[in-house]
C-alpha cells in the first residue's frame, strides 16, 4: 500500500515542468523550516502587552518542541532502519538528492508539523498556513520518492504530539518561560 502510493505519486514527476519546479522548491531542506522560523520571529514582536507575552512563550515552547522532535526522530532513525522508497521501487528521483539515512519517521514532517502546531496554539491563521506548508512539504517528500506515506504520517504525528505536550508543559511550568521573557524584557528584547 505504502509503495503503491509512492509509485502513483511519483508517476507525476516529469509530466508538468512548472509543477516539478514548484515541488523542487517545496521539497528542499530549507524553505519550510526558514518560513516557519521567520513566522516565529514575527510572533516574538507581534501584539501588545499580554498578547505579545503569550506569543513569546509560544515561540519558546515551539523551539523546544522542534529540538525535542528532531532528537526523538534521530533516535528512532538510529534504532530502526528503513530503506528509502527509491531503493526498493523503480522511481524517478531526479528532483531531489539520494538520502542514505533511515526513512522512518520523516524528520521533515516532524519538524514542519511541530513548528505549525506551536504557531497554531497562538495564531490560528498563521498556524493553518504553516500546517498547509508542512503538509505540502511532507507530500513533496513522497512525490519525489524519498519517503513512504507512513514515514511522513509518523513524523507529523510525533511533531504535533511533542509541540502540544510542550505547549501544555509550559502552561504547567509557567514560571520558566515567564522568567526568561521578563529578563529579556529588561534588556528591551522581549
Amino acid at each position: 500500500m505504502d509503495g503503491a502510493i509512492v509509485r502513483w505519486l511519483n508517476d507525476g514527476v516529469g509530466a508538468f515542468t512548472p509543477w516539478d519546479l514548484f515541488m523542487e522548491a517545496i521539497v528542499s531542506d530549507y524553505l519550510v523550516p526558514v518560513a516557519g522560523s521567520l513566522v516565529m520571529v514575527g510572533m516574538w514582536l507581534w501584539g501588545q502587552g499580554r498578547e505579545r507575552y503569550l506569543n513569546q512563550v509560544a515561540v519558546i515552547a515551539g523551539n523546544t518542541a522542534v529540538g525535542v522532535t528532531n532528537g526523538l526522530i534521530s533516535a528512532i532513525n538510529a534504532a530502526y532502519f528503513r530503506r528509502r522508497p527509491f531503493l526498493g521501487h523503480d522511481l524517478d528521483i531526479s528532483l531531489f538528492y539520494h538520502p542514505t539515512d533511515s526513512s522512518f519517521p520523516a524528520n521533515s514532517a516532524g519538524v514542519g508539523f511541530a513548528i505549525a502546531t506551536a504557531v497554531f496554539v497562538r495564531s490560528r491563521r498563521w498556524g493553518a498556513a504553516l500546517y498547509a506548508l508542512a503538509a505540502l512539504w511532507a507530500l513533496s517528500r513522497v512525490y519525489v520518492g524519498v519517503h513512504y506515506p507512513s514515514d511522513v504520517l509518523a513524523g507529523a504525528a510525533l511533531g504535533v504530539l511533542v509541540a502540544l505536550a510542550f505547549a501544555g508543559i509550559y502552561r504547567l511550568f509557567d514560571p520558566v518561560p515567564r522568567v526568561v521573557v521578563r529578563v529579556m524584557r529588561r534588556l528591551g528584547l522581549a
Binding site: D29, P33, Y97
Partner: peptide, 15 residues
C-alpha cells in the same frame, strides 16, 4: 539548493 550534506548541503543542526 537540493544538495546532500556530503556535497555542500547544510544539515539540520548547522541550519
Amino acid at each position: 539548493r537540493n544538495l546532500p550534506d556530503t556535497a555542500g548541503g547544510v544539515d539540520g543542526v548547522k541550519q
